[in-house]
């Protein structure tokens, strides 16, 4: 029964995602962390980090993670199918009816407005996740360094994720030695 609920919830997340996987984050926070408690904010941060380094798109990777956590392999498959289900229906219907959907004036205007909202929602998510992810001065340092490098350098996020994990291991082992 919970599997059905997970499928429907992730389908809802899919419908409410406007833009890439990042735009999905605020919706996931509301539906998965706050409402259903299927994952914590920390876990969601972890899934996003891993999802950026593994094959496939982040939205799908995160869905698989949460489903797997609750119900193993079947859960991972169910949530992933849930998150892609609305795309299948919407694109199939739209492609059948109008080919130049995105050229419609009101669609372009609506999405220009939505993009503003997505910025604000991502900012809110960042503030919320920051509180659970950054525990001390070391964490603060990693955040600032990675943010600056990611903004100014055009390199794959995989490098940052690997280096940050190594930094975490180094810091903790230094602390243990003291």
């Amino acid at each position: 029964m919970e599997l059905l609920k997970m499928f429907l919830t992730f389908a809802k997340v899919g419908v409410m995602t406007f833009g890439g996987g990042m735009a999905m984050l605020p919706i996931l926070e509301r539906e998965i962390v706050d409402k259903n408690g299927w994952a914590t904010a920390e876990e969601l941060t972890d899934y996003y980090a891993i999802g950026q380094c593994t094959p496939g798109i982040i939205a799908v990777n995160t869905a698989t993670f949460i489903g797997h956590k609750k119900h193993g392999t079947i859960g991972g498959i169910v949530t992933t199918l849930g998150v892609v289900f609305p795309s299948l229906v919407i694109i199939t219907v739209l492609a059948g009816i109008i080919t130049n959907f995105s050229h419609l004036a009101w669609v372009a205007n609506a999405f220009a407005g939505i993009r503003v909202c997505v910025c604000v929602l991502i900012l809110n998510s960042v503030i919320k996740l920051w509180k659970s992810a950054v525990k001390d001065a070391w964490g603060c340092g990693i955040f600032v360094i990675v943010l600056l490098l990611a903004v100014f350098l055009d390199v794959t996020p995989v490098i940052f994720v690997v280096l940050a994990a190594l930094a975490g291991v180094t810091i903790k082992s230094l602390e243990a030695r003291k």
Binding site: D46, G139, F160, V161
Partner: peptide, 12 residues
């Protein structure tokens, strides 16, 4: 993960 989480938030 202690090091990874702040980096993940920074990437977002």
């Amino acid at each position: 993960f202690y090091g990874l989480r702040p980096a993940s938030v920074a990437l977002i």
